[in-house]
Design a protein around this nucleic acid. Structure first.
Lengths: 261, 261
DNA sequence: GAGTGGTCTAGACCACTTT
DNA sequence: AAGTGGTCTAGACCACTCT
């Protein structure tokens, strides 16, 4: 009953509750309609102007409600085209205890993978890179940055930095960085990751094809060789709506779990 | 030179670049001023009306720029009081391989900890709770929800669900849920966590004292007893700007968790 | 060209904090 | 009482997409 979608808005002012701001009430109305299945993934909403007219509120107010839902991942907007219910995103699970390669990981799931190169070259290292990778100032750093795409959905931006000694020719990296490293006997066996959440900025959101401000996962990874040497320093940004990281926790030392007030 | 802060805006239109939207240019100006230390944490910005006047743009446009920065965690606004540069937040690190207690974790860092109860009681289980906890429909579920606060900063919302068999009296839970469980010999020894990013909703952002829409971490945890039985199912929401989760990855680990059939 | 979202304006009133 | 952010209006023009 997609035709009924319009009724959500024509009856809006009557069902209004005095207290809450209009844009929050409208937001809730739309959210409810989506959750109750009145409008499903891919369905178009009426235009902002239509909603404003039917609900008898200004377009600015409609826009505020819609924008909130876009940032929350409920709706998507396409300039010049319209506003739609966001497609159901099947989340990709990734283990946080096994060191795997993106390419190999996705292949195992039967997903098509491609990458778009953002950067591949040798540079003078930043102070941070010198510190982490243990470079001296006259050495070079190899930077490899790419947009990871699975099933035609951009999932992550990966920016890796390695010593030029282990990757003298960054342009030679094909689909998998780890595969390239392995041929030189430099595949990492251990890594430490730091995960946090942040709202995506202009640039990142454009690459990941989501609205600016939606939540993403920032991941910093430092990878080690069996010898204990740092081999790779990677900063990645993952789409928050597409990724589930899975970790297993164990009680390492018995007896340290009980809280004390 | 805090007095110079006003000049950021009075010279705004002259330094404007034709192409980009005004609110993005203004956003960048403010962001730069913060990054260059022209205005530091805690400093007040001019009022939205003042900025609009000095920059010769409308208040709505100023507001859009400022709101973006608030959602990005750069600024904070206090209703009736003003707009300020956000205080530097020292992030809390949490291991993703050890099953630890929030209270003890914070104490080890020398931070004061308290909790605010949001819910403590017995309920009819949801279908999901029945599934995960292995309850039948005539059994009850114990729900324990609280807001975790460290150094007077709310950090996380924890909503735990357990079988009423192991927690017949949720109101008896004091500071630590695990301590209560331990007295009944029901201490979990292993857990699987699922981590993703999402923009915080109205309710959650109010509790965590951040603007609606800022990025947060959603964590689902299922805890197991030594016997392998599920004991606890917890949904938590962490502030994205306050938490760093740290995980260690290894090449081939026998105990794999993220894999599916 | 018609319709859509994206940006912008110049006001207005309300709710809240500070003095 | 004065000043602040929070909400809301009724327009306008631009950039883009669809057909």
């Amino acid at each position: 009953m997609i035709e009924d979608a319009g009724q959500i808005f024509s009856t809006f002012k009557q069902t209004a509750q005095g207290g809450a701001p209009l844009y929050l009430q409208l937001k809730k109305s739309i959210e409810d309609a989506v959750n109750r299945g009145l409008i499903g993934p891919g369905d178009a909403l009426p235009s902002e102007r239509d909603i404003a007219l039917k609900a008898d509120i200004s377009r600015v107010t409609v826009r505020k409600a819609v924008q909130d839902l876009v940032k929350g991942g409920v709706l998507v907007q396409r300039h010049g085209s319209g506003t739609f219910v966001a497609p159901r995103m099947e989340r990709v699970e990734q283990s946080l205890s096994r060191l795997t390669s993106f390419t190999e990981d996705m292949a195992r799931r039967g997903m098509s993978v491609r990458s778009q190169w953002l950067d591949r070259g040798l540079y003078a290292p930043s102070p941070e890179e010198m510190m982490v990778l243990g470079l001296s100032s006259n050495e070079l750093v190899a930077r490899v940055a790419r947009l990871r795409i699975a099933n035609d959905t951009p999932l992550a931006i990966e920016r890796a930095a390695l010593s030029a000694r282990v990757l003298p020719d960054p342009a030679a990296v094909a689909a998998s960085l780890y595969a390239t490293l392995q041929t030189g006997g430099n595949r990492p066996v251990r890594a430490v990751q730091r995960i946090s959440a942040a709202n995506l900025g202009e640039e990142d959101s454009r690459l990941l094809e989501v609205a600016p401000g939606v939540a993403g996962l920032h991941i910093e990874r430092i990878s080690y060789l069996a010898s204990g040497k740092v081999i790779e320093f990677t900063r990645s940004i993952y789409r928050g709506d597409a990724y589930d990281f899975v970790a297993e926790l164990r009680l390492s030392e018995p007896g340290n779990i009980g809280d004390r007030p």
